[in-house]
Design a protein around this nucleic acid. Structure first.
Length: 348
DNA sequence: AACACGTGGAT
DNA sequence: TATCCAAGTGT
């Protein structure tokens, strides 16, 4: 039997190599026993779900500047939060972020529950985020299992069972390693290891603090783990977006329903997205087709969006949507696919 | 259990 | 250009 992975070696490595991030407190504060605010850890962890650190940074700064506490966020307007989240993707996160903030404000006196179970009961907090907040904000010995941890465990144990089947096995391996001492630093250390050394491609095994404990290193299989089941290929859907500009410069926009794709976000009125989209203009006008399509790829399909524009008089009422006056409209409030359509229309 | 749910960067 | 991938959750 191989020696267990040397947890202390990883913590030592982390003390020397911890990445600086806006939501992390300074090493000196940390060694003084100061903990980060649960609100900030929760916010950062929700933003980091399936999202890169680089993409999150500016959004995190904007949110914490504008809404410094969970109570502030709970009091925000839905539209303001959705606009601030625009471009970050997975918009259910923003809807659940608000639900969660309001639940904490109203049901918990503005204080986050300090147990994994309590956190798990809140909207948008699943097994990963509950463990991450417990460990990082409260220094509780909970086990975080994200994509990094899965990869590190698969390699450490040379586990060839493909994901997602392997998930319970990898979770068990991770749980067995979680220390009682400094569990918060340990959680971040494993994830940093996965993000910087035990990377998906070309892992830097030569400088890995766990190399000598790693079964995949010994077997020469690190780069091919974890195994994953093959993905289905994405179909292509077609659609039409209608960008109506009133003569005073106002744009015709529509709030999308809360459920489903881009739920709760602002967008251009349009057809359904499918095999053969039907014409469905939101206002009577002379529509002109922009001579290029907006192409966008979602998680599970490609979209080719035909963009149509029209100039309409002041007294014409729309069938759907609401005119937003020019000073109140910012394309940065739109999800990316809608901003692409705008970019094509504005100089057409 | 399997699928829906965004985006941008790297290769 | 195509594919993969990133600190997952809800249904």
């Amino acid at each position: 039997m191989r020696d267990p992975a040397p947890v202390q070696d990883l913590l030592d490595w982390y003390d020397r190599n911890a990445r600086r991030m806006p939501w992390r407190i300074s090493p000196s504060d940390r060694s003084a026993g100061i903990r980060p605010a649960p609100y900030r850890i929760w916010l950062s962890e929700v933003m980091l779900q399936q999202t890169t650190v680089a993409a999150v940074k500016s959004y995190y700064e904007a949110f914490t500047s504008r809404w410094p506490t969970v109570t502030d966020l709970a009091a925000a307007e839905d539209a303001d939060v959705m606009a601030a989240w625009a471009g970050l993707g997975y918009y259910a996160r923003a809807r659940n972020l608000l639900k969660c903030a309001r639940a904490v404000a109203e049901d918990h006196a503005g204080v986050f529950p300090e147990t994994r179970e309590g956190l798990l009961s809140l909207p948008g907090i699943g097994p990963y985020t509950a463990a991450a907040v417990s460990a990082i904000a409260f220094d509780l010995p909970e086990t975080v299992v994200d994509g990094n941890v899965e990869r590190v465990m698969a390699r450490l144990h040379d586990e060839h069972t493909p994901l997602p089947t392997a998930k319970p096995i990898l979770t068990q391996m991770a749980t067995a390693l979680t220390p009682q001492d400094r569990p918060g630093d340990y959680a971040q250390a494993v994830m940093d290891l996965g993000a910087t050394i035990c990377t998906p491609r070309k892992p830097a095994c030569g400088i890995c603090p766990w190399r000598t404990a790693c079964a995949a290193w010994e077997a020469g299989t690190a780069a091919e783990l974890p195994k994953k089941l093959p993905k289905k290929r994405k179909p292509t859907r077609l659609g039409i977006a209608y960008l109506a500009r009133r003569v005073d410069g106002a744009w015709l926009l529509e709030r999308r329903p809360d459920k489903g794709l881009l739920g709760g976000m602002l967008g251009w009125p349009g057809s359904d997205w499918g095999e053969t989209p039907q014409e469905d203009p939101p206002i009577r006008a002379e529509w002109r087709e922009v001579p290029a399509e907006a192409r966008h790829t979602f998680t599970h399909f490609h979209l080719r969006l035909t963009v149509k524009t029209a100039l309409v008089p002041m007294d014409r009422a729309p069938l759907r949507g609401t005119f937003v006056e020019s000073p109140d409209f910012s394309p940065t409030d739109l999800p990316t696919v809608m901003r692409k359509a705008y970019d094509l229309a504005k100089d057409a």
